[in-house]
Nucleic acid binder design. Structure first.
Lengths: 223, 223
DNA sequence: CATTAACCGTACCCAACGGTACGGATGTGT
DNA sequence: ACACATCCGTACCGTTGGGTACGGTTAATG
Protein backbone atom coordinates (compact mmCIF):
# COMPACT_ATOMS: atom_id res chain seq x y z
CA UNK A 1 0.00 0.00 0.00
CA UNK A 2 2.79 2.35 0.59
CA UNK A 3 5.08 1.03 -2.06
CA UNK A 4 2.77 1.24 -5.05
CA UNK A 5 0.71 4.22 -4.00
CA UNK A 6 2.52 6.53 -6.38
CA UNK A 7 1.21 4.69 -9.41
CA UNK A 8 -2.41 5.24 -8.52
CA UNK A 9 -2.27 8.92 -9.32
CA UNK A 10 -0.63 8.24 -12.65
CA UNK A 11 2.27 10.49 -11.83
CA UNK A 12 3.59 12.46 -8.99
CA UNK A 13 1.49 15.58 -8.76
CA UNK A 14 4.38 17.93 -9.34
CA UNK A 15 5.09 19.18 -12.83
CA UNK A 16 8.47 17.53 -12.97
CA UNK A 17 8.07 13.81 -12.64
CA UNK A 18 10.45 11.21 -13.90
CA UNK A 19 10.30 12.73 -17.37
CA UNK A 20 11.05 16.45 -17.40
CA UNK A 21 7.87 17.30 -19.29
CA UNK A 22 5.51 14.82 -17.72
CA UNK A 23 2.07 16.23 -17.09
CA UNK A 24 -0.30 15.23 -14.37
CA UNK A 25 -3.93 14.51 -15.10
CA UNK A 26 -4.94 17.79 -13.53
CA UNK A 27 -2.42 19.66 -15.62
CA UNK A 28 -3.74 18.10 -18.78
CA UNK A 29 -7.19 19.23 -17.76
CA UNK A 30 -5.91 22.77 -17.50
CA UNK A 31 -4.29 22.58 -20.92
CA UNK A 32 -7.49 21.23 -22.42
CA UNK A 33 -9.32 24.21 -21.00
CA UNK A 34 -6.69 26.49 -22.49
CA UNK A 35 -7.19 24.93 -25.89
CA UNK A 36 -10.93 25.32 -25.49
CA UNK A 37 -10.64 29.01 -24.77
CA UNK A 38 -8.12 29.46 -27.53
CA UNK A 39 -10.51 28.05 -30.06
CA UNK A 40 -13.48 29.98 -28.74
CA UNK A 41 -11.81 33.36 -28.66
CA UNK A 42 -8.07 33.77 -28.69
CA UNK A 43 -8.29 37.42 -27.71
CA UNK A 44 -10.04 36.51 -24.47
CA UNK A 45 -7.44 33.96 -23.50
CA UNK A 46 -6.30 35.41 -20.20
CA UNK A 47 -4.80 33.72 -17.17
CA UNK A 48 -7.81 34.51 -15.05
CA UNK A 49 -10.12 33.09 -17.72
CA UNK A 50 -8.19 29.84 -17.78
CA UNK A 51 -8.12 29.65 -13.99
CA UNK A 52 -11.83 30.28 -13.72
CA UNK A 53 -12.94 27.72 -16.23
CA UNK A 54 -10.46 25.14 -15.00
CA UNK A 55 -11.48 25.75 -11.38
CA UNK A 56 -7.97 26.32 -10.35
CA UNK A 57 -6.09 29.31 -9.00
CA UNK A 58 -3.87 31.63 -10.92
CA UNK A 59 -1.13 30.89 -8.48
CA UNK A 60 -1.23 27.25 -9.50
CA UNK A 61 -0.97 28.20 -13.15
CA UNK A 62 2.12 30.24 -12.47
CA UNK A 63 3.57 27.52 -10.30
CA UNK A 64 3.10 24.91 -13.00
CA UNK A 65 3.88 26.85 -16.12
CA UNK A 66 6.00 29.76 -15.02
CA UNK A 67 4.24 32.53 -16.88
CA UNK A 68 1.76 33.12 -19.65
CA UNK A 69 4.16 32.17 -22.40
CA UNK A 70 4.97 29.01 -20.53
CA UNK A 71 1.32 28.09 -20.41
CA UNK A 72 0.93 28.73 -24.12
CA UNK A 73 4.03 26.75 -24.97
CA UNK A 74 2.88 23.87 -22.80
CA UNK A 75 -0.51 24.02 -24.47
CA UNK A 76 0.92 23.88 -27.97
CA UNK A 77 3.27 21.10 -27.05
CA UNK A 78 0.49 19.19 -25.35
CA UNK A 79 -1.75 19.36 -28.38
CA UNK A 80 1.18 18.34 -30.54
CA UNK A 81 1.74 15.28 -28.39
CA UNK A 82 -1.88 14.26 -28.82
CA UNK A 83 -1.75 13.95 -32.59
CA UNK A 84 1.49 12.08 -32.89
CA UNK A 85 1.25 9.21 -35.33
CA UNK A 86 3.55 6.48 -36.42
CA UNK A 87 5.73 6.99 -39.48
CA UNK A 88 5.08 5.09 -42.63
CA UNK A 89 7.37 2.20 -43.37
CA UNK A 90 7.21 -0.46 -45.99
CA UNK A 91 9.82 -1.74 -48.34
CA UNK A 92 7.53 -2.90 -51.06
CA UNK A 93 5.02 -0.63 -52.69
CA UNK A 94 3.11 -0.44 -55.95
CA UNK A 95 1.22 2.33 -57.61
CA UNK A 96 -2.10 1.48 -56.00
CA UNK A 97 -0.59 1.42 -52.56
CA UNK A 98 1.31 4.64 -53.13
CA UNK A 99 -1.85 6.29 -54.39
CA UNK A 100 -3.60 5.23 -51.23
CA UNK A 101 -0.83 6.58 -49.04
CA UNK A 102 -0.66 9.89 -50.87
CA UNK A 103 -4.40 10.41 -50.84
CA UNK A 104 -4.59 9.48 -47.19
CA UNK A 105 -1.83 11.90 -46.41
CA UNK A 106 -3.46 14.74 -48.31
CA UNK A 107 -6.79 14.00 -46.69
CA UNK A 108 -5.25 14.08 -43.24
CA UNK A 109 -3.33 17.24 -44.00
CA UNK A 110 -6.36 19.10 -45.29
CA UNK A 111 -8.51 17.87 -42.43
CA UNK A 112 -6.02 19.12 -39.90
CA UNK A 113 -5.27 22.44 -41.55
CA UNK A 114 -8.91 23.35 -41.88
CA UNK A 115 -9.84 22.33 -38.35
CA UNK A 116 -10.66 24.92 -35.73
CA UNK A 117 -7.91 23.58 -33.53
CA UNK A 118 -5.22 23.95 -36.15
CA UNK A 119 -6.41 27.38 -37.21
CA UNK A 120 -6.39 28.62 -33.62
CA UNK A 121 -2.96 27.23 -32.88
CA UNK A 122 -1.46 28.51 -36.10
CA UNK A 123 -2.90 31.96 -35.53
CA UNK A 124 -1.37 31.99 -32.10
CA UNK A 125 1.97 30.70 -33.29
CA UNK A 126 2.14 33.12 -36.20
CA UNK A 127 1.45 36.13 -34.05
CA UNK A 128 3.88 35.05 -31.33
CA UNK A 129 6.58 33.95 -33.70
CA UNK A 130 9.15 36.40 -32.39
CA UNK A 131 9.13 35.33 -28.76
CA UNK A 132 11.79 36.33 -26.33
CA UNK A 133 12.89 33.26 -24.39
CA UNK A 134 12.60 29.56 -24.98
CA UNK A 135 11.41 27.87 -28.14
CA UNK A 136 9.05 30.08 -30.13
CA UNK A 137 5.62 28.63 -30.62
CA UNK A 138 6.06 28.74 -34.36
CA UNK A 139 8.95 26.33 -34.11
CA UNK A 140 6.87 23.92 -32.10
CA UNK A 141 4.05 24.08 -34.59
CA UNK A 142 6.42 23.65 -37.49
CA UNK A 143 8.13 20.79 -35.77
CA UNK A 144 4.83 19.08 -35.33
CA UNK A 145 3.01 20.10 -38.48
CA UNK A 146 5.45 20.48 -41.26
CA UNK A 147 8.59 18.79 -40.10
CA UNK A 148 6.89 15.71 -38.76
CA UNK A 149 4.53 15.05 -41.68
CA UNK A 150 7.36 15.41 -44.15
CA UNK A 151 9.56 12.64 -42.79
CA UNK A 152 6.44 10.55 -42.51
CA UNK A 153 5.59 10.74 -46.18
CA UNK A 154 9.04 10.77 -47.68
CA UNK A 155 9.74 7.08 -47.08
CA UNK A 156 6.68 6.22 -49.14
CA UNK A 157 7.86 8.43 -51.96
CA UNK A 158 11.32 6.94 -51.76
CA UNK A 159 9.85 3.46 -51.84
CA UNK A 160 7.79 4.40 -54.87
CA UNK A 161 10.92 5.59 -56.56
CA UNK A 162 12.82 2.40 -55.75
CA UNK A 163 9.90 0.33 -57.00
CA UNK A 164 10.04 2.14 -60.32
CA UNK A 165 6.64 3.72 -59.88
CA UNK A 166 8.11 7.19 -59.64
CA UNK A 167 10.95 8.58 -61.63
CA UNK A 168 14.13 9.57 -59.81
CA UNK A 169 13.53 12.61 -57.64
CA UNK A 170 14.57 14.56 -54.60
CA UNK A 171 12.18 13.45 -51.87
CA UNK A 172 12.25 16.78 -50.06
CA UNK A 173 11.42 18.70 -53.21
CA UNK A 174 8.81 16.16 -54.24
CA UNK A 175 7.25 16.35 -50.83
CA UNK A 176 7.04 20.12 -50.99
CA UNK A 177 5.49 19.90 -54.41
CA UNK A 178 2.88 17.51 -53.15
CA UNK A 179 2.24 19.75 -50.20
CA UNK A 180 1.69 22.68 -52.54
CA UNK A 181 -0.63 20.70 -54.78
CA UNK A 182 -2.69 19.54 -51.82
CA UNK A 183 -2.87 22.71 -49.78
CA UNK A 184 -2.52 25.41 -52.45
CA UNK A 185 -3.81 28.66 -50.91
CA UNK A 186 -6.27 26.94 -48.62
CA UNK A 187 -4.44 27.38 -45.35
CA UNK A 188 -3.43 31.00 -45.75
CA UNK A 189 -6.92 31.95 -46.84
CA UNK A 190 -8.46 30.32 -43.80
CA UNK A 191 -5.89 31.89 -41.51
CA UNK A 192 -6.75 35.28 -42.96
CA UNK A 193 -10.40 34.75 -42.17
CA UNK A 194 -11.73 33.66 -45.53
CA UNK A 195 -14.49 31.26 -44.61
CA UNK A 196 -13.42 28.59 -47.01
CA UNK A 197 -15.17 25.55 -45.69
CA UNK A 198 -14.17 22.15 -47.03
CA UNK A 199 -16.61 19.32 -46.63
CA UNK A 200 -15.26 15.79 -46.32
CA UNK A 201 -16.33 15.36 -49.91
CA UNK A 202 -14.33 18.40 -50.95
CA UNK A 203 -11.33 17.16 -49.05
CA UNK A 204 -11.56 13.78 -50.68
CA UNK A 205 -11.75 15.39 -54.11
CA UNK A 206 -8.80 17.66 -53.39
CA UNK A 207 -6.74 14.74 -52.16
CA UNK A 208 -7.46 12.75 -55.28
CA UNK A 209 -6.72 15.68 -57.54
CA UNK A 210 -3.43 16.47 -55.82
CA UNK A 211 -2.39 12.84 -55.98
CA UNK A 212 -3.23 12.55 -59.66
CA UNK A 213 -1.30 15.72 -60.37
CA UNK A 214 1.63 14.44 -58.39
CA UNK A 215 1.72 11.35 -60.56
CA UNK A 216 1.52 13.50 -63.64
CA UNK A 217 4.64 15.28 -62.48
CA UNK A 218 6.57 12.37 -61.12
CA UNK A 219 5.34 9.08 -62.57
CA UNK A 220 8.06 7.01 -64.16
CA UNK A 221 7.74 7.03 -67.97
CA UNK A 222 5.79 4.01 -69.14
CA UNK A 223 8.53 1.45 -69.75
CA UNK B 1 -0.15 82.71 -56.51
CA UNK B 2 -3.29 82.61 -54.50
CA UNK B 3 -5.34 80.65 -56.96
CA UNK B 4 -3.12 77.61 -57.26
CA UNK B 5 -1.95 77.51 -53.69
CA UNK B 6 -4.12 74.54 -52.82
CA UNK B 7 -2.29 72.30 -55.26
CA UNK B 8 1.05 72.88 -53.61
CA UNK B 9 0.12 70.89 -50.55
CA UNK B 10 -1.15 68.02 -52.66
CA UNK B 11 -4.47 67.85 -50.91
CA UNK B 12 -6.46 69.60 -48.31
CA UNK B 13 -4.98 68.74 -44.95
CA UNK B 14 -8.13 67.14 -43.60
CA UNK B 15 -8.53 63.40 -43.83
CA UNK B 16 -11.62 63.59 -45.97
CA UNK B 17 -10.84 65.32 -49.20
CA UNK B 18 -12.72 64.92 -52.43
CA UNK B 19 -12.27 61.17 -52.27
CA UNK B 20 -13.43 59.64 -49.01
CA UNK B 21 -10.15 57.87 -48.37
CA UNK B 22 -7.76 60.49 -49.64
CA UNK B 23 -4.69 60.82 -47.49
CA UNK B 24 -2.65 63.95 -46.95
CA UNK B 25 1.09 63.88 -47.27
CA UNK B 26 1.44 64.08 -43.51
CA UNK B 27 -0.96 61.21 -43.03
CA UNK B 28 1.02 59.07 -45.42
CA UNK B 29 4.11 59.87 -43.40
CA UNK B 30 2.37 58.60 -40.30
CA UNK B 31 1.34 55.41 -42.04
CA UNK B 32 4.86 54.86 -43.29
CA UNK B 33 6.08 55.16 -39.74
CA UNK B 34 3.46 52.65 -38.66
CA UNK B 35 4.65 50.21 -41.29
CA UNK B 36 8.20 50.78 -40.15
CA UNK B 37 7.39 49.95 -36.56
CA UNK B 38 5.28 47.03 -37.61
CA UNK B 39 8.20 45.49 -39.46
CA UNK B 40 10.67 46.22 -36.68
CA UNK B 41 8.63 44.78 -33.86
CA UNK B 42 4.91 44.25 -34.13
CA UNK B 43 4.53 43.73 -30.40
CA UNK B 44 5.84 47.22 -29.70
CA UNK B 45 3.43 48.86 -32.11
CA UNK B 46 1.64 51.19 -29.73
CA UNK B 47 -0.08 54.48 -30.37
CA UNK B 48 2.46 56.38 -28.35
CA UNK B 49 5.29 54.72 -30.26
CA UNK B 50 3.78 55.78 -33.58
CA UNK B 51 3.18 59.30 -32.32
CA UNK B 52 6.70 59.65 -31.04
CA UNK B 53 8.47 58.47 -34.13
CA UNK B 54 6.16 60.37 -36.42
CA UNK B 55 6.55 63.53 -34.35
CA UNK B 56 2.86 63.92 -34.03
CA UNK B 57 0.48 63.79 -31.11
CA UNK B 58 -1.69 60.90 -30.12
CA UNK B 59 -4.65 63.19 -30.34
CA UNK B 60 -3.95 63.70 -34.00
CA UNK B 61 -3.78 59.97 -34.57
CA UNK B 62 -7.16 59.50 -32.97
CA UNK B 63 -8.57 62.41 -34.88
CA UNK B 64 -7.38 61.02 -38.20
CA UNK B 65 -7.92 57.31 -37.73
CA UNK B 66 -10.50 56.99 -35.02
CA UNK B 67 -8.83 54.38 -32.90
CA UNK B 68 -6.06 51.84 -32.96
CA UNK B 69 -7.88 49.47 -35.26
CA UNK B 70 -8.59 52.35 -37.59
CA UNK B 71 -4.91 53.15 -37.77
CA UNK B 72 -4.04 49.56 -38.51
CA UNK B 73 -6.72 49.26 -41.15
CA UNK B 74 -5.57 52.48 -42.78
CA UNK B 75 -2.00 51.22 -42.71
CA UNK B 76 -2.86 47.95 -44.37
CA UNK B 77 -4.98 49.67 -46.97
CA UNK B 78 -2.29 52.22 -47.59
CA UNK B 79 0.35 49.61 -48.21
CA UNK B 80 -2.08 47.76 -50.44
CA UNK B 81 -2.59 50.88 -52.51
CA UNK B 82 1.15 51.22 -53.01
CA UNK B 83 1.62 47.88 -54.72
CA UNK B 84 -1.30 48.05 -57.06
CA UNK B 85 -0.38 47.01 -60.57
CA UNK B 86 -2.19 46.87 -63.84
CA UNK B 87 -3.92 43.65 -64.89
CA UNK B 88 -2.57 41.62 -67.72
CA UNK B 89 -4.36 41.90 -70.99
CA UNK B 90 -3.52 40.56 -74.38
CA UNK B 91 -5.58 38.67 -76.85
CA UNK B 92 -2.78 36.86 -78.56
CA UNK B 93 -0.29 34.72 -76.72
CA UNK B 94 2.08 31.89 -77.46
CA UNK B 95 3.89 29.48 -75.25
CA UNK B 96 6.98 31.62 -74.86
CA UNK B 97 4.95 34.63 -73.89
CA UNK B 98 2.84 32.64 -71.47
CA UNK B 99 5.96 31.17 -69.92
CA UNK B 100 7.29 34.64 -69.41
CA UNK B 101 4.06 35.83 -67.81
CA UNK B 102 3.83 32.84 -65.50
CA UNK B 103 7.44 33.05 -64.42
CA UNK B 104 7.13 36.76 -63.85
CA UNK B 105 4.05 36.22 -61.79
CA UNK B 106 5.63 33.52 -59.65
CA UNK B 107 8.72 35.65 -59.19
CA UNK B 108 6.65 38.59 -58.05
CA UNK B 109 4.55 36.45 -55.78
CA UNK B 110 7.53 34.84 -54.08
CA UNK B 111 9.31 38.15 -53.76
CA UNK B 112 6.33 39.69 -52.07
CA UNK B 113 5.49 36.80 -49.80
CA UNK B 114 9.02 36.50 -48.50
CA UNK B 115 9.48 40.21 -47.93
CA UNK B 116 9.59 41.63 -44.43
CA UNK B 117 6.70 43.89 -45.28
CA UNK B 118 4.41 41.10 -46.37
CA UNK B 119 5.37 38.89 -43.46
CA UNK B 120 4.66 41.65 -40.97
CA UNK B 121 1.31 42.53 -42.53
CA UNK B 122 0.22 38.93 -42.82
CA UNK B 123 1.16 38.24 -39.22
CA UNK B 124 -0.89 41.19 -38.15
CA UNK B 125 -3.84 40.27 -40.30
CA UNK B 126 -3.80 36.65 -39.23
CA UNK B 127 -3.81 37.51 -35.57
CA UNK B 128 -6.51 40.16 -35.94
CA UNK B 129 -8.67 38.15 -38.25
CA UNK B 130 -11.66 38.10 -35.93
CA UNK B 131 -12.09 41.84 -35.58
CA UNK B 132 -15.20 43.42 -34.20
CA UNK B 133 -16.22 46.30 -36.44
CA UNK B 134 -15.43 47.24 -39.98
CA UNK B 135 -13.59 45.14 -42.52
CA UNK B 136 -11.22 42.70 -40.86
CA UNK B 137 -7.61 43.17 -41.80
CA UNK B 138 -7.45 39.67 -43.18
CA UNK B 139 -10.08 40.55 -45.75
CA UNK B 140 -8.07 43.56 -46.86
CA UNK B 141 -4.93 41.51 -47.19
CA UNK B 142 -6.76 38.79 -49.06
CA UNK B 143 -8.40 41.32 -51.30
CA UNK B 144 -5.04 42.73 -52.17
CA UNK B 145 -2.87 39.66 -52.12
CA UNK B 146 -4.86 36.70 -53.22
CA UNK B 147 -7.95 38.10 -54.83
CA UNK B 148 -6.16 40.74 -56.85
CA UNK B 149 -3.32 38.61 -58.17
CA UNK B 150 -5.73 35.90 -59.24
CA UNK B 151 -7.79 38.01 -61.60
CA UNK B 152 -4.56 39.42 -62.92
CA UNK B 153 -3.15 36.10 -63.98
CA UNK B 154 -6.29 34.35 -65.08
CA UNK B 155 -6.67 36.29 -68.33
CA UNK B 156 -3.26 35.08 -69.40
CA UNK B 157 -4.19 31.49 -68.63
CA UNK B 158 -7.46 31.91 -70.48
CA UNK B 159 -5.62 33.37 -73.44
CA UNK B 160 -3.21 30.45 -73.41
CA UNK B 161 -6.16 28.11 -73.47
CA UNK B 162 -7.78 29.93 -76.37
CA UNK B 163 -4.50 29.92 -78.24
CA UNK B 164 -4.29 26.14 -77.88
CA UNK B 165 -1.19 26.28 -75.71
CA UNK B 166 -3.05 24.95 -72.71
CA UNK B 167 -5.69 22.28 -72.66
CA UNK B 168 -9.22 23.22 -71.58
CA UNK B 169 -9.29 24.07 -67.88
CA UNK B 170 -11.01 25.96 -65.12
CA UNK B 171 -8.98 29.14 -64.73
CA UNK B 172 -9.71 29.46 -61.02
CA UNK B 173 -8.58 25.92 -60.32
CA UNK B 174 -5.60 26.25 -62.60
CA UNK B 175 -4.63 29.45 -60.89
CA UNK B 176 -4.82 27.84 -57.46
CA UNK B 177 -2.70 24.98 -58.72
CA UNK B 178 -0.10 27.35 -60.00
CA UNK B 179 -0.18 29.21 -56.72
CA UNK B 180 0.41 25.97 -54.87
CA UNK B 181 3.26 24.97 -57.14
CA UNK B 182 4.92 28.34 -56.75
CA UNK B 183 4.43 28.95 -53.05
CA UNK B 184 4.22 25.41 -51.65
CA UNK B 185 4.91 25.64 -47.92
CA UNK B 186 7.13 28.68 -48.21
CA UNK B 187 4.75 31.29 -46.87
CA UNK B 188 3.45 29.38 -43.87
CA UNK B 189 6.94 28.38 -42.86
CA UNK B 190 8.14 31.94 -42.94
CA UNK B 191 5.08 33.14 -41.06
CA UNK B 192 5.80 30.57 -38.38
CA UNK B 193 9.30 31.88 -37.98
CA UNK B 194 11.29 29.41 -40.03
CA UNK B 195 14.07 31.49 -41.43
CA UNK B 196 13.71 30.26 -44.94
CA UNK B 197 15.54 32.84 -46.93
CA UNK B 198 15.15 32.88 -50.68
CA UNK B 199 17.79 34.61 -52.71
CA UNK B 200 16.79 36.17 -56.04
CA UNK B 201 18.47 33.19 -57.62
CA UNK B 202 16.34 30.82 -55.57
CA UNK B 203 13.22 32.72 -56.47
CA UNK B 204 14.08 32.60 -60.13
CA UNK B 205 14.64 28.87 -59.93
CA UNK B 206 11.39 28.31 -58.07
CA UNK B 207 9.49 30.38 -60.58
CA UNK B 208 10.90 28.39 -63.48
CA UNK B 209 10.22 25.10 -61.78
CA UNK B 210 6.64 25.99 -60.93
CA UNK B 211 6.03 27.17 -64.47
CA UNK B 212 7.49 24.03 -65.99
CA UNK B 213 5.36 21.90 -63.68
CA UNK B 214 2.30 23.92 -64.58
CA UNK B 215 2.89 23.17 -68.24
CA UNK B 216 3.36 19.52 -67.41
CA UNK B 217 -0.08 19.53 -65.83
CA UNK B 218 -1.88 21.73 -68.30
CA UNK B 219 -0.08 21.81 -71.64
CA UNK B 220 -2.28 20.90 -74.57
CA UNK B 221 -1.35 17.47 -75.92
CA UNK B 222 1.06 17.77 -78.81
CA UNK B 223 -1.23 17.91 -81.79
C1' DC C 1 -3.75 13.81 16.16
C1' DA C 2 -0.14 16.76 14.40
C1' DT C 3 2.50 18.10 10.43
C1' DT C 4 3.20 19.09 5.91
C1' DA C 5 2.19 20.03 1.23
C1' DA C 6 -0.67 21.05 -2.50
C1' DC C 7 -4.17 23.85 -4.07
C1' DC C 8 -8.35 26.83 -4.39
C1' DG C 9 -10.38 31.42 -4.07
C1' DT C 10 -9.82 36.04 -3.47
C1' DA C 11 -7.71 40.15 -2.98
C1' DC C 12 -4.06 42.99 -4.18
C1' DC C 13 -0.13 45.50 -6.70
C1' DC C 14 1.71 47.47 -10.70
C1' DA C 15 2.89 48.53 -15.32
C1' DA C 16 1.28 49.26 -19.91
C1' DC C 17 -1.68 51.03 -23.00
C1' DG C 18 -5.94 52.96 -25.19
C1' DG C 19 -8.22 57.03 -25.17
C1' DT C 20 -9.07 62.13 -23.66
C1' DA C 21 -8.15 66.91 -22.23
C1' DC C 22 -5.54 71.07 -22.22
C1' DG C 23 -2.06 74.67 -23.16
C1' DG C 24 0.92 76.58 -26.37
C1' DA C 25 2.92 77.14 -30.99
C1' DT C 26 2.43 77.79 -35.89
C1' DG C 27 0.24 79.15 -39.85
C1' DT C 28 -3.59 80.94 -42.79
C1' DG C 29 -7.35 83.75 -44.43
C1' DT C 30 -9.71 88.27 -43.91
C1' DA D 1 -3.71 92.67 -36.63
C1' DC D 2 -7.18 89.46 -35.33
C1' DA D 3 -9.79 85.22 -35.48
C1' DC D 4 -9.62 80.58 -36.46
C1' DA D 5 -7.97 76.01 -37.22
C1' DT D 6 -4.49 72.56 -37.05
C1' DC D 7 -1.41 70.25 -34.64
C1' DC D 8 2.35 69.17 -31.24
C1' DG D 9 3.72 67.87 -26.53
C1' DT D 10 2.48 66.51 -22.25
C1' DA D 11 -0.17 65.24 -18.68
C1' DC D 12 -3.96 62.70 -17.15
C1' DC D 13 -7.65 58.91 -16.47
C1' DG D 14 -9.56 54.27 -16.47
C1' DT D 15 -9.18 49.64 -17.51
C1' DT D 16 -7.08 45.47 -18.28
C1' DG D 17 -4.35 41.87 -17.35
C1' DG D 18 0.15 39.72 -15.76
C1' DG D 19 2.07 38.44 -11.63
C1' DT D 20 2.16 37.90 -6.25
C1' DA D 21 0.57 37.24 -1.44
C1' DC D 22 -2.36 35.18 1.91
C1' DG D 23 -5.93 32.65 4.38
C1' DG D 24 -8.70 28.49 4.37
C1' DT D 25 -9.45 23.70 2.94
C1' DT D 26 -8.36 19.09 1.83
C1' DA D 27 -5.66 15.07 2.09
C1' DA D 28 -1.75 12.28 2.65
C1' DT D 29 1.91 10.87 6.03
C1' DG D 30 4.06 9.66 10.48
Amino acid sequence: MLVASVDDTGEASTAIGSSPDALSERQREVLDVTLELLIENAAALTMIAVARRANCSKETLYKWFGDRDGLLAATVRYQASKVRVEPFEANTIDKAKLTEVLEGFARGLLSILTSDMSVALNRLAVSQSEAKGGTPLGQIVLQNGRFSTGPRLKPAIAAGMRAGVLRPLDTEEAFRDFYGLAVRDTQIRILLGDDLRLSPKDIEAEAQRATAQFFTLYAAPAA
